[in-house]
Amino acid sequence: METNTEKKVNIKGAKQEDIMSPWKVVWKRLKRDKLAMIGLYTLIILVAVAVIGPFFSYAMEATDIENINAAPSMQHILGTDEVGRDVFARLMYGGRISLSVGIVSVAIEVLIGTILGGIAGYYGGVVDNIIMRLVDILMCFPFLPLLLMLSAVMSARHVDPKYRIYVVMFIIGIIGWGGLCRLIRGQILSLKEQEFMQAAEALGLKDRRKIFRHLLPNTFASIIVSATLSVGGAILTESSLSYLGLGVTPPTPSWGNMIQCAQDIYTLTFQPWRWIPPGVCIFLTVMAINLLGDGLRDALDPKLKR
């Protein structure tokens, strides 16, 4: 009975039912994946709270001198820090910065890494050598001295702290693409010897089309895993950059520099409301992106039939 009615509906509404755009198929598959949807909703909530929340709360620099280092209460939902700033408000402001650093820098990373990795893997020979040596240099380079130097230059040139964060995103993206590039190149080295590439060759496709349409989609699994893992890494790198005075400097909060206060043993033991919330936020972000990435990988896989 079931199949019969379904068939009839299909024949009747063939135009709507059978022809779905690839993205609609992906979305339909993604919706069926509960874990991925949990990840998506968590991410949406985090972003929404970070964007909208600050309009309804204390300003991030407003100090409440009567309640310094206060424990969570009705007045300050997550307590206050050492100069009486509301932790919850700072958490939301910090979320804006940390989330955008995480996502933008990973986007830069993926963009450079994928394109160069694809080109290196496909052409091989001299091109491969040049790009891979570039990656080797990038991976060998000790970044601490470079970052200290950059931070000194930026201070000397009086770069507005507002714009520093963009520099930080850019730097994290530029540092990080080496690993992804090697990963992609390795896979493409193997993929380009397979039969479907001979078919692509026989069709006389352009190189660009071969790389971006036929080779890179096959490495999608690794790209997603690498990207989702490095979002958390980028947020933490931002925190260590802030510590060096390169990133967001203290009056402006970010999840990273809020966690830094846990280095103080007294805060660590007696004031957990100051470092647990940003930690939980980073954890939630990374978790949500990982879940979403996993679901997206499964949904984008055309060979998967359910």
């Binding site: 699994a221 690794s222 895993v225 690498s226 893992l229 990988r297 499964d298 896989d301």
Partner: peptide, 12 residues
């Protein structure tokens, strides 16, 4: 991370 890479490429 190694586990996740392995899982995704194994699934492939």
């Amino acid at each position: 991370s190694i586990m996740r890479y392995t899982r995704s490429s194994m699934l492939e």
